[in-house]
Design a protein around this nucleic acid. Sequence first.
RNA 1: GCUCUGGUAGUGUAGUCCGGCCAAUCAUAUUGCCCUCUCGAGGCAAUGACCGGGGUUCAAAUCCCCGCCGGAGCACCA
Length: 522
Amino acid sequence: MDEAERRARLGEIAPDRLAELDEDEAEDEHVLPALPNAEDGAVVMRAAPNPNGPWHLGHARMPAVIGTYKRRYDGAFICRFDDTDPETKRPDLDAYDAILEDIEYLGFEPDRVIRASDRLETYYEHARELIGAGGAYTCSCAGDDFSELKNAGEPCPHREKDGETVRAEFEEMVAGEYDAGEMVLRVKTDIDHKNPALRDWVAFRMIDTPHPREAAADYRCWPMLDFQSGVDDHLTGVTHIIRGIDLQDSAKRQRFVYDYFGWEYPEVLHWGHVQVDEYDVKLSTSTIKELIEAGELTGWDDPRAPTIRSVRRRGIRGQALVDSMTELGMSTADVDLAMSSVYANNRDIVDDDANRYFLVRDREDDPAVDRDVIGGPDAGHPPLHPDHEERGTRTVPAGRVLIEESDLPARGDRVWLKGFGCVRHTRDAFEYVGDDIEVVREGDVDVVHWVPADESLRTLVRTVEGDVRGFAEPAIADAAVDDLVQFERVGFVRLDEFDPEPAGEAYGPTGEEDLVTYYAHP
RNA sequence: GCUCUGGUAGUGUAGUCCGGCCAAUCAUAUUGCCCUCUCGAGGCAAUGACCGGGGUUCAAAUCCCCGCCGGAGCACCA
């Protein structure tokens, strides 16, 4: 019985089992697990960033996963800026676009972009409705006092206020007639709920600081995340919510509001925190912001910063990040993202396109050393790409060359200058021996990269560990800014700028360079 | 303190719901070999894990109990 017959037979005797098999097979094509209760064409998900800065690497996970599900289920991707705190988590006006740019770099485009700060009237309307249903009350308790009562499971005196008073006081909140801390609107949940986190939580509070967006600058009464997000998820038709374990209780809190309104709560998935190895800098927007302000980092795209802009500048494709993020799966456990996995994914994507060039590094512990080449041709002609002969070769002038000291053979020994030929290290020169590759095949001679001593480009390589200087072969001038190339035996870099201006900082170009590159990975 | 929640190799992941095909999958990593005019790519191989202890069972990564360790919430932050 062949495969087709077997399937047909199984279809006759156990159609359910056959469908199950098909489902399992379809599952195998996806890295991510199937979404619960997902219907093709009817999945709506949202990323809800707080626009308080450009994104760090951890932020890539949400668009990566949502975008991937969107494609899989032919769904919708909403980007909703939850910018409802003009004070503590004050939005950064540049961050709205910066975040959208970061999403675009990852290869996705939101179907809809909304800002919570545009929707205050909507939240107020729902608050009025909730008050009307007896589901909320205005409360002027001091935070600590309420907390004490709450922890004891005791209601505060405001809980039993009559509806008219609540309604009037809420209108006064909306009108901005209270100062910060004087009055809040609480959702009436269950004051002795066994989980203290769910007891009568705050839905609206007063904030004196105007919102940085002009359109929202006049509002003083702001909703808290759980109210705003809950209302918006329903109103925008979100079917599946993904959020971090720090918001584990949000769904439970919001369900009280959903119950008052008779709404059905979306499916919710939680995932753990992401940590990234390889960086000294913490994965935190505020930490990175501080380091930049203190001049420790040259900007959001400093290669030492664990940000999306940084890996982008280093030539890492958004797709590589997306692949790594989806491979992390949907576990509620905290996870560590190994940058080596991002690098492996990126190599897969870029290796074929990246042309090869030589760079001789000039480092403290392994300086570039120069030697005259005696005899042999005038130049070497290594291929632009070993797997693509049709791309042709580069010309690397010989004469006097630089190699890295650790590649220098002992006196009397030979070394193979890649694309040029075999030379013997005599006294203080390289004496040309020949171009018979057999010596390399026999394993007696190492193959090394090299550059001409005089015609090369002074090059700055900016890496995660800091800046490295060196000399790139002249042919690299044929490559363009933004190209990703491989410095043979060193690694992949993105060409960032020719003849850079001095950065005027401890790191970055001094102005003496001919070329600045950003190091991606080995 | 109260309430959630998690623990499979260095890292991530599959398997856990419905116990056996799991002496545990795949990827990455590391190492070695082959190939290659790169330390890239490609090929092959090796390394390496079910948090612990009890119990149920013919059979436990999977079910039950007790521990241990982690993460989160109990904000007028998101």
